[in-house]
């Protein structure tokens, strides 16, 4: 069944848009749940602006599909979130045919809130996320979950820029890799001078399930203002010996321990609506391992 049909069946009251080459700008004027499907069968770079008007509460679910193995698909999406609006942005890419090079920019105006949950479970991916907290009291909670196996690379560059006072960000990047795959997180939280009372936190974690895969985390906190709070943590490595021993001592064999910890790492705190997709994809692919 095509993804359009699945969405129509499951969410008959939602708004569904297939973003083809004729669509360059989308204006969201009403509360609700919006599904955007990007079909990458055409190779041209897709550029889209999505503007969310003031005082809205909006869920955006984004899907990427392709019907044949292709060159790298390029996409650039700019979001403008106006005053007092709350946007919950969920993006799922679990298409193993799709290699992507994407750039997402979120500009947040006064008192607006962005919550993102991005699942990158597909093919080679280069992504650039820029989140600009442009006006006072804007707030971003950014969550990126990545899985890579079978020679796939996942490179993600995340920048959260605090450009005004009383802005808050919380960034979580979680990766699980196995086989000969590679994952890199290049992440920066920047607080501009004058952005007083701002808070910036970032956590990046990559779990490696084989000796052949490689990972790299480059975390940065660039703070140009005294009256702020910031913190970061970054870890990369295998399931600890203590955890392996503990779980095995309950009868669970090593492969299943790795699987449970991998799914746990990526599914922790994500919305219930995404857990099923994530679990199904990971169970299938980790079983293949």
């Amino acid at each position: 069944m095509k993804i359009e049909e699945i969405i129509k069946n499951n969410y008959p009251n939602d708004i569904l848009v297939v973003v083809d080459k004729t669509i360059n700008e989308i204006n969201i004027k009403h509360n609700g749940r919006y599904h955007y499907i990007y079909n990458h069968d055409e190779l041209e770079t897709k550029k889209v602006s999505i503007n969310i008007e003031s005082n809205l509460n909006v869920d955006i679910l984004e899907y990427h599909v392709i019907s044949k193995e292709n060159d790298e698909a390029k996409i650039s999406i700019n979001f403008l979130i106006s005053n007092n609006s709350v946007v919950n942005y969920n993006a799922i890419n679990n298409d193993c045919l799709l290699k992507t090079n994407k750039s997402l920019t979120f500009d947040l105006l006064e008192n607006s809130v962005l919550n993102t949950y991005i699942l990158e479970l597909g093919n080679n991916t280069h992504s650039q996320y820029n989140i600009n907290l442009k006006e006072p009291r804007s707030c971003a909670d950014f969550n990126l979950m990545v899985y890579a196996d079978q020679g796939i690379f996942q490179h993600h560059n995340v920048n959260i820029n605090h450009l005004n006072e009383y802005t808050t960000s919380n960034m979580n990047n979680h990766g699980v890799i196995t086989d000969v795959s590679n994952c890199e997180f290049d992440v920066t939280s920047f607080i501009k001078k004058g952005s007083i009372k701002s808070n910036a936190y970032q956590t990046s974690k990559i779990l490696t399930l084989s000796d052949k895969c490689t990972s790299k985390i480059n975390p940065q906190l660039l703070i140009d203002e005294h009256d702020v709070v910031g913190g970061h943590a970054a870890t990369s490595g295998r399931v600890s010996e203590e955890i392996m021993y503990y779980m095995q001592s309950r009868g669970i064999e090593k492969n299943l321990v790795n699987k449970l910890i991998a799914i746990g790492n990526l599914s922790k705190n994500i919305p219930v609506s995404l857990i099923e997709t994530l679990t199904q994809v990971l169970e299938r692919r980790l079983d293949h391992e």
Binding site: S240, E242, I243, Y245, Y246, M247, Q248, S249, R250, G251, I252, E253, K254, L260, I261, I263, G264, N265, L266, S267, K268
Partner: peptide, 29 residues
Amino acid sequence: KVDERARAGVFLAMQYPSELSGVSNVQFL
């Protein structure tokens, strides 16, 4: 192996049990 011993019926209630972040009690058990 450890898991084979457990499946054979050996159980150790540990002094310092590990924390399994992201793994629920239901999934685990």
